[in-house]
């Protein structure tokens, strides 16, 4: 019945919400992404100052030194809103689940050389703590940032990091028939072994950073930009050559995730740098500060992973990252 009416009188009186008409014009309907992330965050007339921070409003642009005329200049190239995000991750987890089940059922780790397994224990498993920290840091960004586009992208990122910390944990469990020995040893190394202390120290310093955008740079631009290519990509390839392709099956999620994530961090770097020379200078100084700090911290881990080639691998990864950031307008 209603379909018959529709032909005649059911023409829309407007095509999009007012804020989206203002941003994108009133000629066509807004996308789901636009509806979901633009302008939802309150911007004015705050009722009370936070009890623990009398110097800021609940949402406050002055929580970072970065200045944007419009905080919604940044758009996620993946166009993720909650629905498209969970549906994408659900597909990836289905593959991961299948891979984990396959490795488990066929006892594939039995065929992996002991040296490779030990390398996984020493290098990959402690990364669960790194992912856990990345979860905290992205949650911090979700908490402190300005704009619903930022809080949305940071929230998804935070949950991704929890998911990956859990996948690394499951690799640790799978290695030892669900015993916790590997996890315990990795935690011990994370807390005490000299090769991890530089990184742990840097990460703990990131926990107390004041400026959320600096944290964004340190965590999502620099640390991830070094760790993922170095350890989930190059190191995995090395393990595969040494008979550890099983490991690569279990970290496929992380590989795909990083390829995808680079797209929005690139877009963010670009739009922020383009805004002003002041922003560009800030980004550059943060990148160089954290690049120095984190590449020094990662060196002993690179050596643990690659032996004598370690330092060189790290230099290459660092150069690639600097090159990529320079393409977005962030030069050091």
């Amino acid at each position: 019945m209603s379909i018959e009416i529709s032909a005649k009188s059911i023409t829309p009186v407007r095509l999009a919400y007012g804020n989206l008409q203002q941003r994108f014009g009133d000629k066509k309907p807004a996308s789901r992404y636009q509806e979901a992330v633009y302008d939802i965050q309150p911007t004015a007339n705050f009722q009370y100052r936070p009890l623990w921070d009398k110097n800021h409003d609940i949402y406050d642009v002055s929580k970072t030194a970065i200045v944007m005329e419009d905080w919604y200049s940044f758009a996620d190239p993946r166009q993720y809103y909650y629905g498209s995000y969970t549906i994408a991750r659900a597909k990836q987890q289905e593959v991961a689940e299948h891979n984990f089940a396959f490795v488990d059922k066929r006892d594939l780790f039995d065929a992996v050389p002991e040296a490779v397994k030990q390398a996984v224990r020493d290098v990959l498993i402690p990364l669960r703590h790194v992912e856990w920290a990345a979860n905290m840091n992205n949650c911090q960004i979700t908490d402190e940032c300005y704009g619903s586009n930022f809080s949305s992208v940071a929230m998804f990122n935070a949950m991704d990091r929890l998911g990956m910390a859990q996948y690394v944990t499951r690799i640790g469990l799978l290695l030892d028939g669900n015993e916790e020995t590997t996890l315990d040893a990795a935690k011990q190394a994370w807390m005490d072994a000299p090769q991890w202390q530089g990184l742990r120290h840097a990460i703990e310093d990131m926990f107390v950073l004041d400026d959320w955008f600096e944290l964004m740079v340190a965590q999502n631009f620099v640390l991830d930009g070094l760790v993922f290519p170095l350890l989930y990509d190059r190191f995995e390839k090395k393990l595969t050559q040494e008979g550890g392709s099983t490991v690569a099956m279990l970290t496929e999620f992380m590989d795909d995730w990083y390829q995808e994530t680079v797209r929005w961090t690139n877009a963010l770097a670009k739009v922020t740098a383009k805004e002003s020379t002041e922003n560009q200078a800030l980004l550059s100084s943060w990148v160089s500060k954290w690049m120095d700090r984190l590449s020094i911290a990662l060196e002993p881990i690179a050596i643990e992973a690659f032996g004598d080639d370690g330092a060189n691998e790290l230099v290459e990864v660092k150069a690639e990252l600097l090159d990529r950031l320079a393409k977005q307008g962030v030069t050091v």
């Binding site: 909650y82 659900a90 597909k91 990836q92 987890q93 991961a96 949950m159 998911g163 859990q166």
Partner: peptide, 12 residues
Amino acid sequence: MDSYWKFQAEKE
């Protein structure tokens, strides 16, 4: 997280 993604995607 894996079951979270799975169940929530189904709801969505």
